[in-house]
């Protein structure tokens, strides 16, 4: 699933060619994503409007339009937003096509259909069912170690589950949660309220470091993920634990282990993570 760095990379790849163009027409496949794509609602909100900016909140992409309306996109498990020329063949599982001014299309492709594509007015956006439940974005400038301490102390669960909870921290998924815990030297099953200030400070730094590295490497591409220009990321080549079960830890040499937590695979080093 695209996580914060992948969504941020898509946002960055969208800006140069999307901002300044108007939506000329919208086509949809008629198949439902996680929620149905409401074509009339999209048309009312976006037709004729000019894209003015692209931003990200957690794992959500937000495209701001001149009318004050916003297109909210979640890429789900396998969603992609891709630029294409109008005559180009459409990829299978193309569920929405935004025809733009200047002879360009923005296409939403999603084989597994877990994504979200929905228009909101600026006033509705913060109260939307998608954004109203989100926690703090870990790359937000005002996110602090003290906030993380408060959040850890208030939860009663394992660290890995905490990091994946979008209502606490919005943007981390399985890959970057595993990598952050490794970098912080913290075991994935450690209880949140038993993490002291020093460990919380390490975790805070590790979360930001793995996310920023992911963005620098333009995301982690294991299978589906590409940015809006169709380019893969390279972060998969730098991962310390994720997907490396049985391979030696690059720090201590012990074999990386995999356990299942909350129906998700967790990769960790039994030597480095306590």
């Amino acid at each position: 699933m695209p996580e914060l760095p992948e969504v941020e990379s898509v946002a960055r790849s969208l800006r140069p060619r999307l901002v300044g163009r108007r939506v000329v027409a919208i086509e949809v496949s008629g198949l439902s994503l996680r929620r149905p794509i409401e074509r009339e609602r999209l048309e009312r909100a976006l037709a004729g409007a000019k894209a003015e900016g692209v931003r990200r909140v957690g794992k959500y992409l937000l495209i701001d339009f001149s009318t004050g309306n916003v297109l909210l996109v979640h890429l789900g498990m396998s969603g992609r937003l891709l630029f294409a020329r109008p005559g180009e063949a459409r990829a299978p599982h193309t569920h929405a096509v935004f025809r733009l001014s200047g002879g360009l299309e923005l296409r939403y492709v999603d084989p597994r259909r877990f994504g979200v594509l929905r228009a909101y007015s600026a006033g509705e956006l913060e109260r939307s069912p998608e954004l109203s439940v989100l926690g703090i974005d870990p790359l937000a400038p005002d996110f602090s170690v003290a906030q993380l301490i408060a959040m850890l102390a208030s939860a009663r669960r394992d660290l890995k589950g905490f990091l994946l909870d979008q209502s606490r921290l919005a943007g981390l998924g399985n890959i970057y949660a595993c990598e952050a815990l490794f970098l912080a030297g913290l075991g994935p099953r450690r209880r949140t309220h038993r993490v002291g200030a020093a460990a919380a400070a390490r975790l805070f730094g590790a979360i930001r470091e793995v996310l920023e590295a992911g963005i620098r490497n333009r995301g982690t591409s294991f299978s589906d993920y590409v940015d809006a220009e169709g380019d893969q990321g390279s972060n998969q080549n730098t991962l310390a634990v994720y997907g490396r079960e049985g391979e030696p830890c690059r720090v201590c040499g012990r074999k990386i282990r995999r356990v299942v937590q909350g129906a998700r695979s967790t990769f960790y080093c039994p030597g480095c993570q306590k």
Partner: peptide, 10 residues
Amino acid sequence: AEDVLQETFL
């Protein structure tokens, strides 16, 4: 209660 506790400290 966990949500309210977190918000209290925030």
